[in-house]
Design a protein around this nucleic acid. Structure first.
Lengths: 197, 197
DNA sequence: GGTATCAAGATACTCACGGTATGTCGACGC
DNA sequence: GCGTCGACATACCGTGAGTATCTTGATACC
């Protein structure tokens, strides 16, 4: 009667993993990393904490698995952007509109929350860095060929600015207008002006 | 025999508060917000958790009191910078060298850690914002008169970039050279170039 | 100067959460 | 079929934020 046929052990485990990741995404996005408990996630997925620990090494491991998937999707999004027919300027404009965040605005904050958390744990930081560098490397491909900034430097500055802006927006939601990021982007891409007085 | 004479109740309480704040600063700076327990802080100051809760409303309240003091000192530092004899360009250079961090490099990360934490708690966020805006307002006074960016926007972008760079540095400590911030600053300050291709 | 009061702070709890140890049951190898 | 082993549940532990209560000494009042 159940639609799901009998599953092999590995199919069963793979399904559990997917369901836990989906539940983790919903909860982490909504309540943040520290604000989400493993019981929350397990409940939402219809399991118990035992399932989590039999699938992932720790809460951090679960988050990292999720983050890596999110980066996958984001990298794919950038790839499509690059492959599109738009002019380069239009690609940059599209990027400026939603710098690193997926459809979810909370995404950036969640990432930063975990980032700072991982700063205290070398193993977590290393794994996080691996995913994050993938994102940054893909982003660097968008930089114009003739950028006066190097591509990597441009990507670094773009991400730094984008992440920092997300924090500023928490303080003054209306004080960080859409065009501020776009305007800053244009300046970052241009030739360096002489030292201003 | 004890050097400290008998203290009145309010003197005693004020001393306790100072000692707790000093201990909190050392511990928070070293171990981060979530990595520091109230027992740690109380121990370090020679008290128990009871003293903390009789002096502050909560762990967050203790942090906010500390943060406000740190902002005081930072604002004072900027005031001195502004009052100095240096040229405006030199002031900006001095600022670029240590954007928002006091003498402690961990300061920025600690701030961001709490910032994101406070994002989930309106009361905490409001109190944090009050202190942070004081810092940003003081920073805005450094912006050059002829900034093509508005002063406030310049301060917002400067802080966003500085905070974001601190995060990037966690990923690649050597990948964010000193001049990157300064170079980005110069671009952000200059006139907006025509749309690049 | 003695005594009641009240607040600073210590002590002893509660509860939530990450993580572990162990139990159970069904898939897989033989 | 039947023993094994892995997926997951259940029961537990340690730790940390926050609370309730007790102790003690400064202050106010007589």
């Amino acid at each position: 009667m159940a639609t799901a046929a009998r599953l092999s052990r590995s199919e069963r485990a793979a399904l559990t993993r997917r369901e836990l990741l989906a539940a983790a995404q919903r909860r982490f996005f909504r309540d943040g990393y520290h604000g989400t408990t493993l019981d929350d996630i397990a409940d939402e997925a219809g399991y118990t904490k035992g399932a989590v620990y039999s699938t992932f090494k720790s809460k951090g491991g679960l988050f990292l698995a999720l983050f890596d998937e999110v980066v996958d999707r984001r990298v794919e999004g950038i790839r499509e952007l690059l492959a599109g027919e738009d002019t380069h300027a239009e690609k940059l404009a599209a990027l400026a509109r939603r710098p690193v965040d997926d459809e979810h605005p909370q995404y950036v904050l969640l990432m930063i929350e975990f980032w700072v958390h991982a700063a205290r744990d070398p193993a977590l930081l290393e794994a996080f860095s691996d995913s994050y560098r993938r994102l940054r490397a893909k982003l660097a491909e968008i930089a114009p060929d003739d950028a006066h900034f190097g591509r990597d430097r441009w990507a670094t500055v773009t991400l730094a600015l984008s992440n920092g802006m997300a924090l500023e927006r928490l303080i003054d939601p209306g004080g960080v207008p859409d065009d501020l990021m776009a305007s800053a982007q244009r300046r970052l891409l241009g030739p360096e002006p002489p030292a201003a007085g």
